[in-house]
């Protein structure tokens, strides 16, 4: 039996005692899965992602990522674990405005030695890793040293995807990355993202409101059904 890459077991989470945010009896995600996670706002998506990312720990229960109970580790360990194994893409404004395109992409390799090594062993050098990833995501060579503010939002999101994927993290969390894109670039972006996840053997958790995208994913999880807390 395959070990899940993410396993939540009897997880309770709240910011304060009076208002529970999450109550998830069980959630298992297996390596290579393409998860579409949806739920209305306020259903606890951010909290769930913060738990998986190791930013927060549950009040009760266990969160395991890659077979490790990360809630039992210290915050330093979790920060390091996140930078080694998890790539993230946000809804918008993913990039540091004062760095060039390629510097933004290389940033995770500066914080994680593990991802730096993987990128080098796979592509020979950091620069070729970044260039290759960007090329596969449709960012032309000529843009590499441009400031990121010169890019369109669609291009920015693709740069963010390259950054999340460099050094082949086991897990990619994309938090509504397409909501700022128009429908054409949305589909193009999604295809590129899924291709690259396949290519890097990365498990994808894709959070979105847009149910029309569901068809591209291997499993759809509704947080409203998963979470036992009544949404007020």
């Amino acid at each position: 039996m395959l070990t899940p890459i993410i396993e939540l077991d009897q997880v309770h989470f709240s910011w304060d005692q009076a208002q529970p945010v999450l109550d998830i009896p069980q959630l298992k995600i297996y390596p290579g899965e393409r998860i579409f996670l949806h739920g209305p706002s306020g259903s606890g998506k951010s909290s769930l992602l913060n738990l998986i990312g190791g930013i927060n720990t549950p009040n009760q229960g266990n969160v395991s990522v890659l077979g490790q109970k990360i809630n039992q580790q210290g915050s330093a360990w979790r920060d390091r674990f996140r930078s080694n194994h998890i790539g993230l893409i946000f809804q918008q404004f993913n990039l540091l405005p004062y760095l060039s395109v390629i510097e933004n992409v290389l940033l995770p390799c500066r914080f994680s030695a593990k991802r730096r090594q993987r990128a080098i062993s796979r592509y020979g050098s950091l620069n070729s890793a970044a260039t290759k990833l960007l090329e596969q995501l449709g960012i032309a060579q000529s843009m590499l040293n441009r400031p990121v503010t010169a890019l369109s939002i669609g291009q920015q999101q693709r740069v963010a995807a390259a950054r999340a994927l460099i050094g082949s993290p086991e897990l990619l969390i994309a938090d509504e990355p397409t909501s700022a894109l128009d429908s054409d670039s949305r589909n193009a972006f999604l295809q590129l993202l899924i291709n690259e996840c396949d290519h890097n053997e990365t498990t994808l958790i894709f959070v979105s409101h847009d149910n029309s995208l569901q068809a591209n994913f291997s499993r759809v999880i509704s947080l409203a059904q998963l979470n036992q807390v009544e949404v007020m």
Partner: peptide, 14 residues
């Protein structure tokens, strides 16, 4: 604040 959150996501410690 956004800049800091990006750095945190990438693995920067507080």
């Amino acid at each position: 604040r956004r800049e800091m959150a990006i750095l945190r996501a990438i693995g920067a410690r507080p």
